[in-house]
Design a protein around this nucleic acid. Structure first.
Length: 261
DNA sequence: ATGGCCGTTACGAACGGA
């Protein structure tokens, strides 16, 4: 079995202990990180290599930052999502890795939050979805086992939030975001969790503010999107909510999907 | 409730997160 994790760590340096717990107890083959919040020169490379991972990082100071960690060899590295040459934020990393003899294309994705629906950063978020759709469409031609995990900052359906009535039109649940996310899920890209669990309510994020965790007011905004070729060999998908209950937790939990080796 | 908490930067208070 091949276990692939996506996790918005909200600072890799602040989350190193929890990361070590994930590596030792869950033992994922591939980990896709978001919000590492660190320049490449300050990434805790040794600590993570000592836990048995090869590292591909794309970071910046203070904000954003993505990484791909793999038990196997990696090649064909990409750091830029096509469609906007002026976009210099560290929100995308992609490579090919080989695990237990199976070659997989993986991507770590950090979709812009958008700040507020009326903010000028909201159109940047919408455009980012459109760029993802265009790029995933290009990749479709390769017929590969492809997995794009990340913080997509959108809950796709009513079942994915604690209160659809309360959140309608709000950031992360606005119809324009959901429409664009839905558009990505056409032509052979699938939401791994929803494919495996059509009717289960489960969240990947709970707000630090308003004691979101204590009241179970969460949203499913982290996703592992998979190509049809990956879907065909997928055996499991789920979340690790126990990571939200820990001291000094990230506001997001690791999400996983498993493939036949 | 345009709030609450958390991490980063830089050393107080602002920014971003969703």
């Amino acid at each position: 079995m091949i276990n692939i994790i996506s996790w918005n760590v909200n600072s890799i340096r602040a989350r190193l202990e929890h990361f070590a717990t994930l590596a030792r107890e869950i033992n994922p083959d591939v980990i896709l990180l978001q919000e590492t919040k660190v320049q490449d020169i300050h990434f805790p490379r040794e600590a993570i290599e000592d836990l048995g991972y090869n590292i591909f990082i794309h970071g910046e100071k203070s904000y954003n930052g993505v990484a791909i960690l793999s038990r196997g060899p990696m090649e064909d590295f990409k750091k830029h999502l096509p469609g906007d040459e002026d976009d210099i934020q560290s929100r995308y990393a992609e490579c090919i890795t080989t695990i237990k003899g199976r070659t997989i294309r993986v991507a770590s994705v950090y979709v812009p939050n958008g700040t507020a629906v009326k903010s000028d950063r909201f159109p940047y978020k919408l455009k980012f979805f459109e760029r993802l759709h265009a790029h995933f469409n290009e990749l479709q031609a390769y017929d590969e086992v492809f997995i794009a995990g990340g913080d997509y900052n959108v809950a796709p359906e009513n079942i994915d939030v604690y209160s659809p009535e309360q959140l309608e039109g709000q950031l992360g649940f606005h119809i324009e975001e959901r429409k664009r996310f839905r558009t990505i899920l056409t032509g052979g890209i699938h939401d791994s969790y929803r494919t495996m669990h059509p009717n289960t309510q489960a969240y990947s994020w709970w707000d630090y503010r308003s004691s979101g965790w204590a009241h179970n007011k969460g949203m499913r905004i982290d996703h592992l999107l998979v190509s049809s070729q990956a879907c065909d060999i997928m055996t499991e998908a789920g979340m690790h909510p126990e990571f939200r209950a820990m001291e000094r937790a990230s506001d997001h939990v690791p999400i996983y999907c498993k493939l036949k080796a």
